[in-house]
Design a protein around this nucleic acid. Sequence first.
DNA 1: TTAGATGCAAAGGGTTTGCAACGTC
DNA 2: GACGTTGCAAACCCTTTGCATCTAA
Lengths: 144, 144
Amino acid sequence: MKNNKKTLFVRKSRQREVMLEVLKGTKSHPTADWIYQEVRKSLPKISLGTVYRNLKLLKERGEILELHYGDGQSRFDGNTENHYHFNCQGCGKVYDVEGPLKKDMERDIAEKLGFVITHHRVEFYGVCRECREEVSLHLKEERL
Amino acid sequence: MKNNKKTLFVRKSRQREVMLEVLKGTKSHPTADWIYQEVRKSLPKISLGTVYRNLKLLKERGEILELHYGDGQSRFDGNTENHYHFNCQGCGKVYDVEGPLKKDMERDIAEKLGFVITHHRVEFYGVCRECREEVSLHLKEERL
DNA sequence: TTAGATGCAAAGGGTTTGCAACGTC
DNA sequence: GACGTTGCAAACCCTTTGCATCTAA
C-alpha cells in the first residue's frame, strides 16, 4: 500500500481531455509515446511528462488500464470493460478478446486460499491470422 | 518475429548453472537483482550483466518464465509447469495458483477468431491472507 | 487567490551492450 | 584453436521529477 498522493482534488485540463479521447478512440493498446505523438496533433506543445502524469492519474481513477508485455514500455487501454487480451507473437499486436469473464475462477481460488480477489486478467499468446502466412515465410527463410 | 541471434550453440557455465539452481529453489518469483545477490553468495565475482544475459538465454530456451507487473522490474519464475499467479496488492508477493488450466478457453477463442494460441496466462489480483489485518490497520490510520 | 496542471530538462533506474579476457568443447 | 561466456563499465531508453509558470475554479 504505497501511495503518497498530495493533491486534494483534480482540475480538468485540455491535455487530459484530449488524451482520454485518443485512448477511447483506439483499440490499439498504444504506448505512452504513441499517445504523445497523437495528442500533439491537436496540442503541439504538450510534453511527454504531462502525458505520463495524466496516464498515471487516469489509471489511478480507473479510467484506463495499463498493460505490461515486457517489451520495455507500458501499453494503455482505454477500454475498461471486462475483457481479455490476445497477444500476437508475430506482429506484437494486442487484440481484445470479448466474452464472459470467468468469475467462478476467482471464487474457487479465493475460497481455497483465503485471499480476497478483486479482479483477474487473462492473456492469450499465439499467432494472429494475418501473421500466419508470414510466419511460414520466415521459417522457410531460416531454413536456408 | 524479431530475433537476431548469432550463437550456434550453448556452452555450459557455472554461472548459469547456479542461477538455475537458485531459480528452481525458490517460489518467490524474484527480480534479476535478487537473483544476482543470491548467486553472488557462491560466485562473488559474477556480474549483473551476466545475470541478465543468462536470464534471457534461459527464458528463450523455455527453462524459466519472465513476469511483468509494472513495478519497474521483471520477475522470473523457475517453475515452468502450467500454473496461474496471484498478485497481492498489499505486500507485492506473487503466489502460485495450482489447479487445472482452462485449456478450453484457448480452444473457444482460437476457433472464434481464427488465431493459433500457444498458451495463456492468468493473473489474479487482490489481498492475501497475511495482508488483510494490515490493510484494515492502514485504513484506520488514513482516517486520522 | 489558491493549489492543481504543464513544459522543459535533468535525473532515475532497470536492462542492454561493446570489448578484452577467460572458459568450454 | 574456435567460439561461446564473463566482468566491467558505459550506454540505452522509458519513466519520473523539480521547478518556474500557467490556469481552472
